[in-house]
C-alpha cells in the first residue's frame, strides 16, 4: 500500500507548479507532516508536506521542473523499503476545474431520480371518491368547464383518475353535444362585460385626508387621493405606460396623469380627460347605491355609499382587462381605500 504525492493546486488559476527543491530524497523515511519539497507558483512559495508515515519512493520530478497540477511526482510507501528507481510519471486525474460545465453535466451520474415513490401513487379509482371528489389537473378542470364537459362522466365510464388535458378527448367522445351547444363556448363571441363589486365596512379616506392636511398643511382632496390609489392599483396592468385616470366627483371631471408616481394626493389635475386609461366615479355624495352601466371606453371604478359601508363596482369589457387583472385591480383599490397607509408600502 502506497500513497501518491501529487503536485498540489495552490492557486485558483494555477496550471503548473515549479519544484524549487526536495527536502527529502527517494528512500528517506518520512513522517506525516514532514516537509517533502518546496513549490513555487505565480503567487507564492509553498512547502508540501507528507500526508502519511512511510518511505519516499518513485520520485519522478527533479528540482527546477515545472509539473502540471495533479500529476503524481512521488509515492510514500508503507514501512521502509529500498529506494526504488525513478518510475515513469503516472497520468493523473485532471482537476475538475478543467472540465467545462457542459461536460460536468453530462458525465455526472444522477442518483437524484425524481421522487415518484415519495408522492402517493394515484390509485386508479373507477368512480368518484367516497366524498364525490374528482381528481383532475386545474387546467383539465377549467377546459372541461369551459367546454361544458362533465368530468364525472369519465369516472362513471371507469377511466382511472386523475384526469389531465389529454383525457378530455375521451370525455368529448363520451358526452353527446348538448342541444344548443356548450353554454360557455356559445357565450364567447359576444362576451358580456365584466362587473365586479366590493364592499368595505368603512373607508379610511376622510381620516387619511384630515391627517394629511394636519401634517402637511397642504389642501388634500379625496378625489386626488382616490385617483392615486386607482392608478397604483391599475399599474400592474399598465406596466410603464402613461396612466390617465379620469375622475368624476360632484359633477366635475378632471384627469390625473401617472397619479401613482407622485405623493398620494399631490398629483396635479388636468382639466380635460382625454383618452383615459381608467375612469373613476366618486358617487358617495349622490343618492346612487348601485349601478350596472356596462363596459365603457375604459375600465370604470364607481365608489358609492351605503349607510356607513362603501360599495365599489368595476365594469369593463373582457378585451380591456383579463378576469385576473380585473380582480387584482378592484381588490388592490378596495384595500387601499380601506387602509390608505397600504398605499405607501
Amino acid at each position: 500500500m502506497s500513497r501518491d504525492v501529487i503536485m498540489p493546486a495552490l492557486g485558483m488559476a494555477q496550471k503548473t507548479g515549479l519544484i524549487v527543491r526536495w527536502l527529502k530524497q527517494a528512500g528517506d523515511p518520512v513522517k506525516a507532516g514532514d516537509v517533502l519539497m518546496e513549490v513555487e507558483t505565480d503567487k507564492a512559495m509553498m512547502e508540501v508536506e507528507a500526508d502519511a508515515d512511510g518511505t519516499l519512493t518513485d520520485v519522478s520530478a527533479a528540482a527546477g521542473e515545472e509539473v502540471p497540477v495533479g500529476e503524481v511526482i512521488a509515492r510514500i510507501a508503507d514501512g521502509s523499503v529500498a529506494a526504488a528507481a525513478p518510475a515513469p510519471r503516472a497520468p493523473a486525474t485532471p482537476p475538475a476545474v478543467k472540465s467545462p460545465p457542459a461536460e460536468r453535466t453530462q458525465t455526472s451520474t444522477p442518483v437524484r431520480t425524481p421522487a415518484v415513490a415519495a408522492a402517493p401513487a394515484p390509485s386508479p379509482s373507477p368512480s368518484p371518491s367516497k366524498n364525490g371528489r374528482i381528481f383532475a389537473s386545474p387546467r383539465a378542470r377549467r377546459l372541461a368547464a369551459e367546454q361544458g364537459l362533465d368530468l364525472a362522466k369519465l369516472a362513471e365510464a371507469g377511466r382511472p383518475q386523475p384526469y389531465l388535458v389529454q383525457h378530455l378527448a375521451e370525455l368529448r367522445a363520451l358526452a353527446p353535444e348538448p342541444a344548443g351547444g356548450a353554454t360557455f363556448a356559445a357565450a364567447a363571441p359576444s362576451a358580456p362585460p365584466l362587473r365586479l363589486t366590493a364592499t368595505l365596512a368603512k373607508d379610511g379616506l376622510a381620516e387619511f385626508c384630515a391627517w394629511r392636511r394636519a401634517e402637511t398643511g397642504a389642501p388634500t382632496e379625496e378625489i386626488a387621493v382616490m385617483a392615486g390609489m386607482a392608478a397604483a392599483a391599475f399599474r400592474p396592468s399598465a406596466s410603464n405606460a402613461e396612466l390617465v385616470v379620469a375622475a368624476y366627483a360632484f359633477g366635475a371631471a378632471r384627469s390625473f396623469v401617472n397619479a401613482d408616481r407622485s405623493g398620494l394626493g399631490s398629483a396635479k389635475a388636468v382639466d380635460t380627460p382625454a383618452n383615459p386609461t381608467l375612469v373613476l366615479r366618486d358617487l358617495r355624495g349622490a343618492a346612487v347605491t348601485d349601478l350596472s352601466l356596462g363596459a365603457e371606453a375604459a375600465p370604470t371604478l364607481s365608489v358609492m355609499r351605503r349607510g356607513v359601508e362603501t360599495f365599489i363596482t368595476l365594469e369593463c369589457a373582457p378585451a380591456q382587462l383579463r378576469p385576473e387583472a380585473a380582480i387584482e385591480l378592484i381588490s388592490e383599490f378596495a384595500g387601499r381605500l380601506a387602509e390608505p397607509l397600504r398605499h405607501l408600502l
Binding site: R104, T105, Q106, S108, T109, P110, V111, R112, T113, P114, A115, V116, A119, P120, P122, S123, F135, S137, Q161, P162, L164, Q166
Partner: peptide, 24 residues
C-alpha cells in the same frame, strides 16, 4: 450528485407528461 443535471430534468419532464407524479 448534488447539482441539477440534464438527466434529472428530462426525467421529471417525462413523468409530468405522463401525469405520474400527481399527488392524489
Amino acid at each position: 450528485l448534488t447539482v441539477p443535471t440534464p438527466k434529472v430534468v428530462a426525467e421529471f419532464a417525462r413523468l409530468m407528461m405522463k401525469g405520474e407524479p400527481f399527488h392524489v
